[in-house]
Design a protein around this nucleic acid. Sequence first.
DNA 1: GTGGAGAACTAAAGCGCTATAGTCAACGGC
DNA 2: GCCGTTGACTATAGCGCTTTAGTTCTCCAC
Lengths: 338, 338
Amino acid sequence: MGNRPTIADIAKRVGVSPGAVSFALNGRPGVSEQTRARIIEVAREMNWRPHRAARALGGAQAGVVGLVLARDPRTLGSEQFYTQILYGMQEVISAGGSAVQMQLVRDTAAEIDLYRHWAAEHRVDGLVLVDLQLDDPRIAVVRELGLPAVTLGLPGEPGRLPSVWADDAEAMTTIVDYLAALDHQRIAHVAGPPVYQHTARRTSALREQATARGLAAESVPTDFSDAQGAAATRTLLSRAERPTAIIYDSDLMAAAGLGVALEMGIEVPRQLSIVSFDDSVLTRIVHPALTCLSRDTYALGAQVATSLLAAIADPGSRESVRTETPRLVVRGSTTRPG
Amino acid sequence: MGNRPTIADIAKRVGVSPGAVSFALNGRPGVSEQTRARIIEVAREMNWRPHRAARALGGAQAGVVGLVLARDPRTLGSEQFYTQILYGMQEVISAGGSAVQMQLVRDTAAEIDLYRHWAAEHRVDGLVLVDLQLDDPRIAVVRELGLPAVTLGLPGEPGRLPSVWADDAEAMTTIVDYLAALDHQRIAHVAGPPVYQHTARRTSALREQATARGLAAESVPTDFSDAQGAAATRTLLSRAERPTAIIYDSDLMAAAGLGVALEMGIEVPRQLSIVSFDDSVLTRIVHPALTCLSRDTYALGAQVATSLLAAIADPGSRESVRTETPRLVVRGSTTRPG
DNA sequence: GTGGAGAACTAAAGCGCTATAGTCAACGGC
DNA sequence: GCCGTTGACTATAGCGCTTTAGTTCTCCAC
């Protein structure tokens, strides 16, 4: 049953010392090719696997990388995006024999706490930081703990952590370009919490674009919950001069917004165009399907994992990887106003 | 920096042996209360944490429990439910200083593979098995590996693993009761893959209920994807004698079904009532909001975690916990037909 | 006053693996 | 023919913790 073979068992069977077996199995010099082959064969035969804990104890790696999502339980449901990221990461990380540990916590304070615990217990080899904030407190903590980390979302300026990012400003411009071409004059933006860097970037990009083109534009902050997304939509649509197009920072809020429009008897897209900043199954199942920015989230997760592995291998690295700007996928929720 | 204090450091500082420190910190007898207090204080002062790997190596636990989701990448998006479960589990598991390791894999074969890896590497102390199948191959594997496990969803018959479950048949009856009271005569059921035990149970419960009441009822199997949910809905609604109510086995498919109805110009709920077997943010944001079976998924996750911890503590235990049958939450998607 | 029980410790081994220092034989060059 | 190398190993220590088997010391009973 649970009697896994150890390196010593293999050594005995092959007739060499445990050290030799370790060399052989780790591709280190110190054994002849012949012996190495024999050892590897026996190891396979005996169905040997390294004991993670034993390796980790020897000062080596824990074989786990962490991804923490700080979410108010009330805003649960917005993790579609991260489920995909997780999947993409896992593909890369498991190939290296490690695992991704995802954990949901209540807020950033709890997240930082968790990092300290993990670091103290040697539980993880590296971290992915998501939902970057302005002046993000996590950066200093991660540095202090000496944990390799990669940020997802913003160019690596903050504390010079390596990062994987896409250009949010450019993405917003793509949307505004399109809406302006359709002749929308009043555009609203149901944004996330202003403390998030990506929200800030999108908001300022929208403002710039609107000014440049002489459009009326407005960003409404929310906490990313469906409730606040719906509430913001209701407010916007209750105005005398209501917007003809609304851009939502998440697919969940976009879907909620669509629900509100239906509820208020406002036709989508005839009277209101809707664009979501995220793509997911959600944007496809509602009717009309939502026009949105889409990208290969799975690949993004894989890229993050790759960058993280690089950061773990070389803790000095600060390389920042820019990924493709999400492209606009036009579906049934947008048209000319009128 | 990464120079965590060890038990030996504490021992030196207090002036006792490492063994004594271990006793003290683990609440084991062998030290005086006075010394124990002193040791605990110093440990806190030095910010000591147990080194997980070292503990695990000593034959103790890995401090991780696993939850694997087998999902065809195409059907990704249906994990809302499990995100909640995960959250609930984490609350309980982290309280005990452990962590939940969730992993997404392609199919059951990959899942079994993963279990073997995890067992061989001593990575997890226990498992939660979800999406139970008829004659589930995982049960034998888990038993063979000697890994404590709890199943979620079905009474623990299969191989007598402890389980946490709710009565699916009763739940289905609740729905049919309600629809029958509204005077629906033709009810359809967009189900999951028949290989799943819960699908099988719901399907047969529907058949029984329909027979007993003289209703026309039909279950259509799908793979749980939004695409097949939509396709099944299209087929059902294209019939001459179309159903006046459809029950969906997941919130995702229900939302997709609603989208199809809108697309076909069929009014919900006037011409079609929709009931979802799962609740989530999704059922609330669409319009009309969906009538559904609802339960406290978070609490369910917590219960699963509790049962799993019990199973780990006492591997012989087979206790099965029955949870409340989900209750019907009526929203805007159901009414009398006509 | 002595034997023994119990409390409060210490000493040391061991978990499975890695890493470093050493051993030993074969080989080659001058 | 001897020294120095090199290759192929072995021996051993050590990672941080738990645990078992001692070792003291005190206290009490007879």
